[in-house]
């Protein structure tokens, strides 16, 4: 049992942590919720009458188009990451243990290197007189440089490049846990490769898929510097809208409402992830 003498240490630690989280996480988020229902004010940013104008503005055709386009690019990014990452994680889990460590290390290196610099490196490759166009022209595949930079595709490539490891790592961990016996059992029960994949492998790896989707989809809506560097002014993300509303247009209620859309999306994805994990837990028991 803990004696009375031990309590000060525990109390001090708990006050520190709770204080930090309440002051720098909970309070700021409540402020954003509050800001989203207030009225825009050119001097003090926000003023009273409470209203839902900011949320109504989200459905303004002009912004709705930007949001849907952003959502489309984020969804495409997630899809491409999943299509590349799923077989990749599968193949990775089959490699020998020693080599796996090195390969995982190589996967984390980009995560530790400056994402801004890596996005810029893509610009060197995709620019009109960049490496890719020069290479394609020198082998005679094209006569004139392609417009690769400042397109929707460039933004998606940039996002995939930055976020792919975040899709692979959770997928890799579910493939690692995938029990070989289950696959053998499925085979013994007469299931073919395709049937095993659909009925055994896909459901068992679903939590990893959802975790990966969560880790890719949300940043893919927020990383405003990717369109800034690669996308030009027509391929904006929700993150660009939030940034413009807060830092340039000074329309805080609208920026806050847009940010809440992101938070709600996150909550929804987290809920789906929990649900999928619980289902597997029950089936396994």
């Amino acid at each position: 049992m803990h004696s009375v003498m031990q309590q000060p240490f525990k109390t001090a630690v708990l006050i520190l942590v709770w204080g930090w989280l309440l002051f720098l996480v909970l309070a700021p988020n409540l402020l954003v919720v509050g800001a989203s229902v207030m009225t825009r004010d050119p001097v003090s940013f926000l003023s009273l009458p409470l209203n839902l104008d900011a949320y109504r503005q989200l459905f303004d055709p002009l912004y709705l188009e930007v949001f849907l386009h952003s959502l489309y690019m984020a969804a495409m990014t997630t899809l491409v990451c999943l299509l590349i990452g799923y077989p990749f994680a599968w193949a990775l889990s089959k490699v020998g243990k020693q080599r796996q460590l090195i390969l995982i290390f190589l996967l984390i290196v980009p995560f530790w290197t400056n994402s801004l610099v890596r996005t810029y490196a893509l610009k060197l490759i995709l620019a009109t007189n960049g490496l890719l166009n020069s290479a394609l022209m020198s082998i005679g595949l094209i006569d004139e440089p392609l417009q690769l930079l400042y397109t929707e595709g460039a933004v998606i490539i940039g996002l995939v490049y930055l976020l792919l490891p975040f899709m692979i790592l959770p997928l890799y961990s579910v493939f690692e846990d995938l029990k070989q016996e289950l696959l053998l059992a499925s085979h013994d029960l007469g299931a073919g490769r395709f049937s095993t994949f659909v009925h055994v492998i896909v459901p068992l790896t679903l939590p990893g898929v959802l975790a990966g989707v969560m880790l890719v989809l949300l940043p893919a809506m927020g990383l405003f510097f990717v369109p800034d560097i690669l996308g030009g002014s027509r391929n904006l993300l929700v993150g660009n809208v939030i940034k413009n509303q807060f830092l340039d247009a000074r329309n805080w209620p609208f920026g806050a409402a847009a940010s809440i859309v992101l938070t709600v999306t996150m909550a929804f994805l987290m809920f789906a992830h929990r649900l999928s994990k619980r289902r597997i837990g029950e089936e396994g028991a």
Binding site: N29, L218, G222, I242, A256, S259, L262, M266, M270
Partner: peptide, 10 residues
């Protein structure tokens, strides 16, 4: 898990 930008504006 939250998108960085949400943390940033808050």
């Amino acid at each position: 898990m939250s998108p960085e930008i949400v943390l940033a504006i808050s």
